[in-house]
Computed example of a mutant assay.
Amino acid sequence: MTTTTVAPPGAPAPQRVQPRLRALRYEPEPDTGPAQLALPTGTPGPPPPPGRPPAAQRTLEDGTVRRHAQGIVRLILEVLDGRRPVAHLNRHLEPGPLRYVAAAAGTRGGARRDGSARMRSLRLDQPRLGAAEVAAVCLLGGRIRALAARFELFDDAVGGWRCTALRIG
């Protein structure tokens, strides 16, 4: 983008300033690990947040995260479309997302409008072991909608991947 300035008569013409670019470093030096950056040796780290599941040993490469996420998103769409009751999501969603789906299903009245709900695409990212974030494009009520969800792996009586956060736009 160039800007033009007009100098008054008799004044020297303004000089054009060339911007300087500097390389920024976003990563630590190769010999510096995260433990060396965060705390000195022998200092205990902060305790893990309460109620969080332990880190799992599953990654995106083995495909289990994707299969579980796709299955749960399909269940959510079927509930929103009125083909399934909300109770089918009890073991797959935490209480907050479950209330969100129940409220959304209640506003739709359980009636299908322009065909059945379908998932068009799904993108998945794993920010850390034991957690996955999903962005999906869905056809819902004859409209294209975005769905964002977070899944975490729990090691409790129910076990498995559960949705801990959900939004439909």
Rank of each mutant, 00 (worst) to 15 (best):
P49I: 00
V158C: 06
Q70S: 14
E133C: 04
A149D: 02
S121K: 07
L80F: 05
R120H: 10
L122G: 00
I76K: 02
A117I: 07
T4I: 14
R118S: 12
R150P: 00
H92Q: 15
C163S: 07
R74K: 05
L80A: 08
T64Y: 08
G45F: 01
L122C: 14
Q70V: 12
Q15M: 04
G106E: 09
M1S: 13
A135F: 07
Q36A: 14
R58H: 15
E29Y: 04
R74M: 08
V101M: 05
A148K: 09
G71L: 12
P19Y: 10
R108Y: 02
P95V: 05
A165S: 13
P85W: 02
R52K: 01
A149C: 06
G130L: 08
A55V: 04
R66H: 14
L93V: 07
Q70F: 04
R108H: 11
A102E: 13
G96W: 02
D114P: 00
A55Q: 08
W161S: 03
T3Y: 12
A11Q: 13
V137A: 09
R162C: 08
V158F: 03
R66V: 07
A11G: 02
A11H: 14
L93Q: 04
G42S: 13
S121F: 05
A148D: 11
T41M: 06
G42W: 08
Y26A: 11
R112K: 03
R20H: 11
L140G: 09
M1D: 10
M119G: 14
A56T: 15
R66D: 12
P19W: 10
R113P: 04
E78G: 15
P34T: 12
L80R: 11
L93S: 07
L124H: 04
L37M: 11
A117V: 03
A131Y: 01
G82A: 04
R84M: 07
T43R: 15
M119H: 00
A13W: 01
E27V: 10
E133R: 12
Q36M: 10
P50G: 06
F151W: 03
R58F: 09
A13M: 10
A56V: 04
T2F: 12
E27S: 12
L93W: 06
C138H: 01
T4Y: 10
R123T: 13
L80I: 11
R58N: 08
S121T: 15
